[in-house]
Nucleic acid binder design. Structure first.
Lengths: 133, 133
DNA sequence: ATCAACTAGTTGCCTACGCAAGTTATTCCT
DNA sequence: AGGAATAACTTGCGTAGGCAACTAGTTGAT
């Protein structure tokens, strides 16, 4: 618990300082970058992120008003929407990347051996997946 | 990031349901139980917990008004204090323990192999220690 | 002995976010 | 086709907690 808070808080501060974005917001952008360019449904984005649906609504509000992402109407479901990166958002993410990876290294990766990195990666993948099931 | 939030949120809900305490509060009690019975300084408690000094002040306020811990004057430093579990707090912690361990198992430990458990334990210990340095 | 520099804890302010209830659209059953 | 049950967001409300500024006590230098 302490370790996870230490890492998260440290990286959050780095992210704020480097880009003005909270770590959770940066993470949303990163998920969106990996998603189809047509966009992704809010519910799916919430599941892939650290937020609940309500938290997601507000994070999307913030990022949208910063012009980093956009909400599009969903053609197949009138209730839904598709969320996608704008080019501004994509650019911001690209520019933030180098410092972001350094931040991961400083706060987390540099403290692990290769074996530990593997173990943590597979184990945490499994835990995250278990929750979505 | 997702895994750590999933685990923390799940355990927090369990803790709330079982005892009415947030996970962070339960953790403070657990740290206090391991501390000398004369108590521990707030700054040290904050360092051993997931909270900053200011967050700690308020968490201590809550737990104190629930009668689970007490603030004592610090004999060696007039600015400081010593925080210690009350017997009510100790009892609450003991009663919560079985369900707490089940919660750890459900959300975390059961998903790991023994090797992974070792790797995570030593690696995270190292990360937490690095931050305190 | 006095005063500056530091440290311990607290508080004002602000924001993020979870939960639960609400709204609108969809699906499914008959 | 029509209406109950369900699903996708949103919003009202409440709370936790970080940061930075504050207060009070301590230490150290002269």
């Amino acid at each position: 618990m302490v370790a996870s808070v230490v890492v998260t808080r440290g990286m959050d501060r780095d992210s704020q300082a480097a880009t003005g974005l909270a770590l959770a917001e940066h993470h949303l952008l990163a998920v969106l970058e990996a998603a189809p360019s047509t966009g992704i449904r809010p519910t799916d984005l919430a599941a892939a992120s650290t937020l609940t649906k309500s938290g997601l609504t507000r994070a999307v509000d913030r990022l949208e008003s910063d012009g980093l992402i956009e909400r599009r109407a969903c053609p197949s479901d009138g209730r839904g929407q598709l969320i996608a990166l704008t080019s501004k958002g994509r650019q911001k993410l690209r520019r933030a990347a180098p410092e972001f990876f350094r931040s991961i290294a400083r706060h987390f990766a540099d403290h692990l051996t290769d074996r530990e990195t593997d173990a943590v990666a597979t184990a945490f993948e499994r835990i995250a997946a278990a929750d979505r099931a």
